[in-house]
């Protein structure tokens, strides 16, 4: 082996170690959460954990159902708001706007992703919550407020991935459709969407993952009451909020129960990411 080759293989090994240490963080987190969270689930029974209504850690009652439903509700609400807006925006940027306008708008949308979530929460508390309280009633801190704020927060994810996948559609498809006398909108609906479908689905699923995982903004505007909301104007507590709100003072089984909450979240997000990966891979094949 020459000196250069030896150097090359040393560098290769060094890079390999660095790359694996990034992956190992994932492994450590996974193992740690599962190790801390599963014993208590086994002790009280997985079913009871997931489907019990009462969360009274001081009385050894650990029912996560209100939080599971809370998370599902705000995530669904966020999608109802974020998906139509996001897709409309992506279609506008790729199919209807001039190149110059796109060059201005797209970076601005990506900038939205860089705003700290506490700022979104702050805007919610200062503007949205009072607005809902005064116009629609209820405490203002609610499913509706969280859905709206989360819907805005997932816009950059949905828009940028959808734009990328619409842009990745060969321009020949668009031209072929226009050359047959189709309008822009017909072209978008009948050719571009089906061609970019997997990327668009992936964008929605990743947006969903973002919405489920969001914590800070939701704590500030959701009200955090442990009860299944009866209307969109009722307060709600999500799985993430549950962990963040109680971790500071929890100990013993209570602490373990919070880790169990983490396990459930972790599993949900892993499933979503896998679906997103599989659908976007299918496009390339």
């Amino acid at each position: 082996m020459t000196r250069l080759e030896r150097k090359e293989s040393l560098i290769r090994i060094a890079l390999l170690v660095v790359a694996f240490s990034a992956v190992s963080v994932l492994v450590v987190i996974t193992v740690f959460i599962i190790e801390e969270g599963t014993p208590i689930m086994v002790k009280y029974g997985f079913k009871k954990f997931l489907f019990n209504l009462d969360w009274f850690p001081s009385e050894e009652s650990y029912g996560l159902l209100p939080m599971v439903i809370g998370s599902i509700m705000v995530t669904f609400g966020a999608l109802v708001i974020g998906v139509p807006f996001g897709l409309a925006c992506a279609v506008f940027l790729t199919e209807f706007s001039s190149k110059r306008l796109r060059r201005v708008i797209k970076p601005m949308i990506e900038l939205l992703a860089g705003i700290p979530s506490v700022v979104y929460g702050f805007m919610g508390v200062v503007i949205l919550v009072p607005f809902i309280r005064e116009t629609l009633g209820g405490p203002g801190l609610s499913v509706l407020a969280s859905s709206i704020i989360l819907g805005i927060m997932i816009l950059p994810t949905i828009i940028s991935i959808s734009v990328d996948s619409l842009e990745a559609v060969p321009p020949a498809y668009r031209e072929g459709s226009i050359a047959l006398g189709a309008t822009r909108w017909q072209t978008t609906r009948m050719v571009m969407f089906p061609a970019a479908r997997s990327g668009i689905i992936a964008s929605i699923i990743l947006g969903m993952g973002r919405a489920i995982g969001e914590t800070m903004a939701v704590i500030m505007i959701a009200g955090n009451a442990i009860a299944i909301p009866r209307s969109l104007l009722d307060p709600v507590r999500t799985l993430t909020s549950n962990i963040a709100l109680e971790m500071a003072y929890a100990s013993g089984e209570h602490r373990q129960a919070l880790f169990a909450t983490g396990v459930i979240l972790f599993v949900i997000i892993m499933i979503l990411n896998t679906i997103a990966n599989v659908t976007s891979k299918r496009r390339k094949a």
Binding site: Y173, E175, G176, S177, A179, G181, A182, M190, V191, A195
Partner: peptide, 22 residues
């Protein structure tokens, strides 16, 4: 076109595309 550019749809949908559009 220079390169054949059928839409990534079924043969049926490709041929009837123009009809649906119009």
């Amino acid at each position: 076109f220079q390169r054949p550019n059928p839409f990534p749809l079924s043969i049926f949908d490709n041929v009837t595309y123009g009809l649906r559009v119009h």
